[in-house]
């Protein structure tokens, strides 16, 4: 479960995030939409305790992320826009290392099982990551989440740069994790993917959460319209 309460981050006079309050329960996928600089990544950085909040609190599974930085990270998996792994290690070795330092000692067969569950082709298991596409690396990231038995997934524009097939596969993997009860926060520009995978959608602008929807209650075209209105964009008429 992810909870933020009046979470605020300021850089001098600039407010990157303003009184951000949100709760994402087990099995929920919350997609944060917004233009660049809206505060989506700042929210994720605050949840990861990569930066300290100016005020407000953020917690993972009921534990404050600032007070319990290490304990909270045991519950979560983070997949950035461009997931970088050790290029000279194989997929199995990367998975073994990252799940291992997170405290999960796994056998090679179970590691391969997680990679398979994440949708990575079998012949890529023992290949070095250096030759992997972005989509394949994201799958290893999902395998890390599976191996860690993660409770919270933080995704920062994970589908950006992925081809539609890879993006679709990624969406299916999120659904799998949702069924396992994982609470997911995904920052994205991809309205279509957000509508496809999310249970809830929020639109941010200038560090503030402006609108929230239950994904099933809104159509894609309506979502697009609301998004553009929030951003003060005018529809382009050809």
């Amino acid at each position: 479960m992810i909870t933020t309460n009046n979470l605020t981050k300021m850089y001098g006079d600039f407010t990157a995030l303003n009184n951000f309050t949100l709760t994402i329960g087990q099995g929920a996928i919350y997609c944060l939409l917004g233009a660049n600089g809206a505060g989506k990544t700042t929210t994720i950085n605050l949840l990861l305790n990569f930066i300290s909040p100016t005020s407000g609190t953020a917690s993972i599974n009921g534990l404050d992320v600032v007070k319990n930085p290490i304990k909270t990270k045991a519950f979560l998996t983070y997949i950035p826009e461009n997931l970088m792994l050790y290029s000279s290690l194989t997929a199995v070795e990367n998975l073994d290392y990252f799940s291992g330092i997170a405290g999960k000692k796994l056998t090679v067969s179970s590691l391969k099982g997680f990679l398979e569950e994440a949708g990575l082709q079998t012949d890529a298991f023992d290949k070095r990551i250096g030759a992997f596409s972005k989509g394949m690396r994201q799958k290893v990231g999902i395998a890390i989440a599976l191996a860690k038995d993660t409770k919270v997934l933080l995704l920062d524009e994970p589908t950006s740069g992925l081809d539609p097939k890879a993006s679709n596969e990624f969406g299916l993997l999120l659904q799998k994790l949702k069924e396992k009860g994982v609470a997911t926060l995904m920052a994205t520009h991809d309205l279509f993917r957000a509508k496809e995978v999310a249970t809830h959608i929020g639109i941010m602008k200038d560090g503030t959460l402006r609108q929230q929807f239950v994904a099933n209650d809104i159509s894609l075209s309506k979502l697009e319209k609301e998004y553009l209105n929030t951003m003060d964009y005018k529809e382009l008429v050809l």
Partner: peptide, 18 residues
């Protein structure tokens, strides 16, 4: 610089200890 630090820092470890 290679980008792995963010993934490492998201693990339940202390970076100075690492």
């Amino acid at each position: 610089e290679s980008g792995t630090l963010r993934l490492l820092a998201a693990q339940p470890i202390s970076i100075p200890n690492w």
